[in-house]
Amino acid sequence: MNILFLMIPMALVLGIVFVAGFLWAANNGQMDDLDTPALRILNDEPIKEKYKPKGTTQL
């Protein structure tokens, strides 16, 4: 069971590292806008050829 005395501090340090990483990301504004980047990646030139229009029958 002595291994616990190594594992527990390691687990805690790992946890702290991840929390610190998250704090850094949040303070850097990475969580501010979660919607636009997902759309931005779609905007590849030329957009028109790649896109197949929907609902053409309705015209």
Partner: peptide
Amino acid sequence: IKKEQRRDLIRIAVTAACSGNIML
């Protein structure tokens, strides 16, 4: 609003990390 949201997120992150470890 943005500042407030960051603060909330950090609060959640800290709580998640602590309560997760407490559960273990």
